Amino acid sequence: MNGAMHDSGVVDIQLKRGPAGLGFNIVGGVDQQFVSNDCGIYVAKIKDNGAAALDGRLQEGDKILAINGHKLDNLLHSAAVELFRSAGENVQLRVQQRHTMPLVNGPSRPRPDNDPSYFALKMLGITLASVVLLTFVCIRLRPHMKRHF
């Protein structure tokens, strides 16, 4: 593993800059607060197949506390961006993860859309919605329908 986990949900992650950079976008700073009353720098988007996505530990919404030992407290957004741009090829991040996940036996991610039980639940919902809509339409049209005997 390429990092250490601390008790407070803080993890150290080392990334190697790829052709497209580190593979994520940041938001925040004293001039562009992303979280109310917090001037921190946060991960806004993880780019597909970028260094961060391939590593897998950095997630959207995580707060980046430091880059290469430079704390990101009370910085303008542009100053934080410059620190990331000039960080070099091997970048050490200290990150406070958005959610600290307890260790569990089983998948750590939500079920994919192609999971059979998810598909069955989705189909049940669509069927139920269709029945309700059809019933509503039939009740609304009943007074307008002429009966022929």
Rank of each mutant, 00 (worst) to 15 (best):
I46R: 00
G50T: 14
L58N: 07
D38H: 08
R57E: 05
K45D: 13
E60C: 12
Y42Q: 05
L65H: 06
A52R: 03
Y42C: 04
D38Q: 12
V35I: 15
D48P: 14
A53I: 02
R57K: 12
G40L: 09
S36N: 13
I41H: 04
V35A: 14
Q59C: 13
E60D: 11
I41V: 15
I64W: 03
K47L: 15
I67K: 08
G61D: 10
A51T: 06
L54Q: 13
I67N: 02
N68F: 04
N68V: 02
G50P: 13
V35Y: 12
L65C: 08
G40W: 03
V43H: 01
C39L: 09
I46P: 00
Y42S: 03
G56R: 01
G56M: 00
N68G: 03
I64A: 04
D48R: 15
K47I: 15
G40N: 05
G56H: 01
I41D: 05
V43S: 02
I46A: 00
S36D: 14
K63C: 04
S36G: 11
Y42K: 01
E60F: 05
C39H: 10
I41G: 05
Q59N: 15
S36L: 10
D38R: 10
A44C: 09
N49R: 15
L65T: 04
N37S: 08
G40Y: 06
A52F: 06
A53F: 10
K47H: 14
C39K: 10
A51I: 07
K45V: 13
D38T: 12
A51D: 02
A52Y: 04
A51K: 07
E60A: 15
A52K: 02
C39N: 14
Y42E: 05
I67D: 02
G69R: 08
A52I: 05
R57G: 02
K63E: 06
A51Y: 05
N37K: 08
I46K: 00
G61T: 08
E60L: 01
G56V: 01
D55R: 02
A44K: 15
G61F: 09
L58H: 13
I64P: 07
V35F: 12
V35S: 10
L54W: 09
D38M: 12
G56N: 00
D62W: 01
D48C: 11
N37F: 05
N49F: 15
D62C: 01
G50Q: 11
C39D: 14
K63P: 02
K45A: 12
C39F: 14
A66H: 05
Y42R: 00
Q59T: 07
Q59I: 06
I46E: 00
I64Q: 09
G50E: 04
N49V: 07
Y42D: 04
G69W: 14
E60R: 13
V35W: 11
V35C: 14
C39P: 15
K45S: 09
D48L: 11
K63L: 03
K45I: 10
G40D: 06
D55A: 08
I64D: 07
A53W: 10
L58R: 14
